[in-house]
Simulated scan of single mutants.
Amino acid sequence: GLDSSLVAATLMKLAKQEELKYPVQTFAIGAEDSPDIQAARKVAAYIGSEHHEVSFTPEEGIKVVKEVIFHLECYDITTFRASVGMYLVSKFIREKTDSVVIFSGEGADKLTQGYIYFHKAPSPKAAAEESVRLMKELYLFDVLRADRTTAAHGLELRVPFLDHRFTAYYLSLPEEMRVPKDGVEKFLLRSAFAGENLIPDDILWRRKEAFSDGITSVKKSWYTSLQEHIESEVNDSELEMAAKTFPFNPPKTKEGYYFRQIFEELYPGRCEWTPHYWMPRWINATDPSARTLSIYKPNKDQ
């Protein structure tokens, strides 16, 4: 994604300035035709990193459902979907390389209003408040995912966009400066890097693509394949009884029911660890994926 590309490019620039002997390595996971794989290749070629690609198929993701939920200690739907890719790429790094400390662009979407639904914010003030709410809940969702999926394979994660000095500075800026502009989310952050030639311009201005969506083809998202598998694992009567079976935070879909069932098997009586499901705001959404939103528009090169 954009954020990890900016982190990688900045590290590459610093490595050249300091004349470090060790190469900067970049990693991407996805299907051969996935948007993230294509973008990562372009960035890696541009910055000259030692690039690694990890193949991903829905079947491979389905095989690790239980172990991912075990490490996450969470049953949130979108957190799980994104965790599978991060878990598998972390497994690759551990088994195939000597790298231990890795960097990620985690947190930038919350801080700099990168989610597509921010276009629907009723006011700059509401958008700023939502950004702060997302930051406060990082430990429940995104940072939980990033920490647990990497730690599961003995890796140490660094998240530059969540440096306390940077977050304090960014949140101190006027609310009007931080909102999407000209139909582009994360406009201020992108503008700050414009003209620096750190990454290709089309990547710098590439529209937001959620990690769990970006690792698979636009034609068929990973979560769609997952839902098709789950269809035979959870029957209609079980879903109808979900509110009685799971009175706290009851799942409303078969996918949610499936994750919750596995979580309860692993961590009985600990359902409050996930206080609510992550969902977009200011828009009538029934699924957390950006691809299901009416305002979603795929990048032109996909």
Rank of each mutant, 00 (worst) to 15 (best):
H119Q: 13
M279Q: 06
I230R: 00
H119K: 14
D109L: 09
L188K: 03
P275L: 15
F27N: 10
D163Q: 02
M177K: 03
T26H: 12
G105R: 07
E130W: 03
E228P: 00
H153N: 09
E67V: 15
P250I: 00
S131I: 01
T26R: 13
Y75F: 15
G114A: 03
G269D: 08
R94E: 12
A121E: 05
Q302A: 07
I203D: 04
L171P: 00
L14C: 04
S123H: 06
Q17N: 10
K219I: 03
E130P: 00
F92H: 13
A243H: 06
K16M: 07
K63Q: 15
K297P: 01
D142C: 12
A128Q: 09
A192D: 00
S191Q: 12
D109V: 08
T274L: 07
K66V: 10
R41I: 09
T224L: 13
A8W: 10
V100R: 14
T149C: 14
V43Q: 10
T245A: 00
K300T: 09
Y87K: 07
P180F: 04
K186S: 02
M279T: 04
K96C: 02
D301S: 08
A108W: 02
E175F: 01
Y117V: 03
E265Q: 09
K63T: 08
A151N: 09
E95T: 05
E265P: 05
E196W: 01
Y257E: 00
E176Q: 05
V65T: 15
V132Y: 06
A152C: 06
N197I: 00
C271L: 10
V54T: 09
N284Q: 10
G85T: 09
E95N: 13
R206L: 05
V64R: 14
T167K: 02
V159I: 08
F80Q: 06
V143T: 12
K125T: 12
P275Y: 15
R133S: 05
K21E: 13
R41N: 15
A285M: 07
E209S: 07
L293Q: 15
W205V: 04
Y87A: 11
S191L: 06
A152W: 06
L72V: 05
L111H: 06
H164L: 03
N299L: 08
N249P: 00
Y223K: 11
I29P: 10
